[in-house]
Simulated assay, not measured.
Amino acid sequence: MLGSLTAAAENHDPTGAFPDGGFPVLLGYSLSKTAVNALTVMYANELREEGILVNSVSPNWVPTDANDHSGILSREQGAVMPVRMATLPDGGPTGTFTCSDATGAGLTLPW
């Protein structure tokens, strides 16, 4: 989510990890995530005709050493979308930015 230019411009986190108006300013981290998202779109466009799917996916805010084991989702909930996106069938979505959510349905994030 921190790589979404739309979310940053709107100062709104669509995942619910941060309150409205509280989009965090983490320059180095956010810039690196934005670069990964741009690379995702470029690879998706380059490999689309070959049937290779390229998507960005986030587990969302899950407990890790980096966040002192806090988070809004469990590690198991966070694993749902990365696994789903890694096992997409031929013809599945490409060039998307998706994250895990508490429902298991996932959330497509804006670029």
Rank of each mutant, 00 (worst) to 15 (best):
E10A: 06
A44M: 13
A9M: 07
N60R: 12
P89C: 08
P19H: 08
A66S: 10
S70T: 15
A66C: 05
M1H: 12
P82M: 01
M85I: 06
E49H: 14
A7I: 03
L26T: 12
D101A: 09
L107D: 04
L107G: 06
T98E: 09
G3A: 06
I72S: 07
C99D: 03
V83M: 00
L39W: 11
F97K: 00
N60S: 15
L53N: 05
H12F: 10
P82W: 01
P19R: 06
G21I: 00
D65H: 10
L53P: 04
S74G: 09
V41A: 13
V41T: 15
G51S: 05
P14A: 03
A105C: 13
S30M: 11
A79Q: 06
T94K: 05
I52F: 05
T6N: 03
H12A: 03
A102K: 09
H12R: 05
V41H: 14
D20Q: 01
V80I: 07
I52R: 06
A7N: 02
A66L: 13
T87I: 00
L107Q: 09
H69R: 13
A17Y: 09
T40K: 09
F18K: 11
S70A: 12
N37Y: 05
M1F: 15
L5Q: 05
G106H: 05
T40S: 11
T98H: 10
I72W: 00
P14I: 00
A102D: 05
P24M: 05
A102L: 06
A35F: 11
M81T: 03
T15F: 12
A79T: 04
S70I: 11
S56W: 08
T108Y: 14
T87G: 00
E49A: 15
E76L: 07
H69T: 06
P63N: 04
N45C: 14
V83P: 00
G104S: 09
R84H: 07
W61G: 02
L26M: 15
T40Q: 05
M85A: 02
G104Q: 06
A8H: 02
S30P: 11
E50W: 11
F97M: 03
